[in-house]
Simulated assay, not measured.
Amino acid sequence: MKILQVGMGPLGQKISEFIEQRSGLQIVGAIDTNPQLIGSDLGSLNTKLTTPIKVVESIKHVDDKPDVIILTTTSTMESITPQILELLDLELPIVSTCEELSYPWICSPDLSKQIDDKARKKGVAVLGVGVNPGFLMDALPSFLTAVCQSVESIKVDRVQDASQRRLPFQKKIGAGLSQDEFAKRKSDGSLRHVGLTESIQFIATALGLELDRVTDEISPLISENGIKTKDLNVEPNFCTGVRQIGTGYLNGKEIIKLNFIAGVGIESSYDSIEVAGNPNIKSTIEGGVNGDIATCAITVNAIYSIVRANPGLRTVHDVPLISRMNGKA
C-alpha cells in the first residue's frame, strides 16, 4: 500500500522509519507547511531512512497516487477538522494521531458530524488513534471487560519516566518550568495531557453508560533538590512533570478513574488497569509502554484496519481489530 504522510515533524519522521521497515508499505509523498522542512529529502531528516522522497507543501507535488493518508499535525479537533475536510476531497482513508479525534463525539459533536458526513459521502473512513488516547487508557481496559459478567468500576494508572521520551514530550508535560510558569500554561490550556476526557467517554460508551459528569484535574510534580537529565536541567522546586486525574461519575458515584503521571526522574514506569466486577481483573505492564514507539507502531498498524473499515468517522472501538500485521490486509 502506498502511503501519503501529512505532517513531517519528529512524530511523522519516526512513523516514516516504521513504514520503511515494513514490507508491503511504501511512502509516496510527504507534506509539511514548515519552510525549514520543504525541499528536504526524508533521509536528511532521519538518517535511518533511505527513501528519496522530498517534503513538499502540497498534494499537487505528489506524483504517485496514495492509498492511505497518515496525518500527524495537531492535537485538537478545532485545528484538525479543516485539514481532514480538505484531505477528504482526495477520497482516501485517513489515520490521524490527533488526540481529540480518538473519541470526539461527546466533546466536539458538531465537528465530528462534519467529518463523519463528508467521509461517508466520499466513501472512506477517518480514524484517530495513538497509544494514549487510543489504546492504553481506553481501548485496552474496555476490551478487558469482555470477560466480565458485571463491571462496577475501572481504574487506570499510567506512570511514565519522561526522561525516556523525546524532548518535545518532556516540555509538553511542563518539565523544567517554574511553578508560576506551570500555572500560567495550565490556565491557558497549553499544558495538559490531551485526550483524558475522550478516554473516559470512550470507556463509558463501550460499557453502554451515559455519565453524569467528567472532571479533569491537573497539578505539577515538583523536584525538591533538582534533577539533571541528558535533555534537561530541572532546578530545585521547579516542575518535573504533570499529574492529571480524570474521573467519570454515574449517579454521583465515581465509576471511571484515569491517573496520568509523567515526569523526569520517576523511578519506575508502569501501566496498570483494575476492573472491579465479576470477575475482578488487574493487569500491569511492568516498565510501561514507551509512548513514542507505541504511537508510531499503532498508527502504522492501523493502516490495515482503516482500509477495511466502514465509511465515516471511526474510533478503535468500531474498526477491524488493530494488530501487528506481517503481511497485506
Results as ranks from 00 to 15, higher is better:
96 S>Y: 09
264 V>M: 05
33 T>S: 09
228 K>A: 10
109 P>Q: 02
60 K>S: 15
299 T>Q: 09
126 V>W: 02
180 D>V: 10
73 T>L: 11
28 V>L: 04
168 P>Q: 03
77 M>D: 13
190 S>L: 05
58 S>C: 00
72 T>A: 13
138 D>S: 07
293 I>K: 11
308 R>W: 13
64 D>E: 12
26 Q>Y: 06
134 G>L: 12
60 K>F: 14
322 I>L: 04
215 T>R: 09
68 V>T: 13
155 K>H: 14
33 T>H: 02
105 W>F: 06
274 E>H: 09
37 L>M: 11
8 M>V: 10
88 L>E: 07
324 R>V: 12
93 P>W: 02
56 V>S: 02
69 I>G: 03
303 I>W: 06
290 N>I: 13
294 A>C: 13
328 K>D: 15
244 Q>P: 02
276 A>T: 13
292 D>A: 04
231 D>N: 15
189 G>H: 07
173 I>Y: 00
236 P>D: 01
148 C>I: 12
249 Y>R: 07
106 I>P: 05
65 K>M: 06
116 D>L: 02
27 I>P: 02
325 M>R: 04
272 S>K: 15
269 S>R: 04
305 S>C: 09
9 G>Y: 10
262 A>G: 11
217 E>A: 12
177 L>Q: 12
288 G>L: 06
134 G>N: 01
306 I>N: 01
262 A>Q: 09
5 Q>Y: 07
31 I>P: 07
129 V>Q: 08
28 V>Q: 05
87 L>P: 01
184 K>L: 15
253 K>A: 10
105 W>H: 12
22 R>A: 04
158 R>K: 15
131 V>N: 11
324 R>Y: 10
75 S>I: 15
199 S>R: 00
109 P>M: 09
97 T>F: 00
4 L>N: 13
174 G>Y: 11
208 G>K: 03
242 V>M: 10
309 A>C: 12
216 D>I: 15
222 I>V: 14
42 L>F: 00
299 T>Y: 01
171 K>D: 06
327 G>I: 12
31 I>W: 03
152 E>S: 15
93 P>T: 05
292 D>Y: 03
70 I>E: 03
147 V>H: 10
200 I>C: 03
36 Q>S: 06
107 C>D: 14
75 S>D: 14
14 K>I: 13
29 G>V: 06
278 N>P: 07
278 N>M: 07
209 L>P: 08
125 A>D: 01
232 L>S: 13
146 A>W: 08
91 E>R: 05
285 I>A: 04
151 V>L: 12
38 I>C: 01
28 V>D: 04
259 N>Q: 15
137 M>K: 10
153 S>G: 08
248 G>D: 10
276 A>E: 10
194 V>G: 14
62 V>H: 05
19 I>A: 04
65 K>Q: 09
86 E>G: 11
77 M>H: 08
250 L>K: 14
118 K>Y: 09
168 P>Y: 01
246 G>V: 00
249 Y>L: 03
30 A>M: 05
201 Q>C: 09
60 K>E: 15
196 L>W: 06
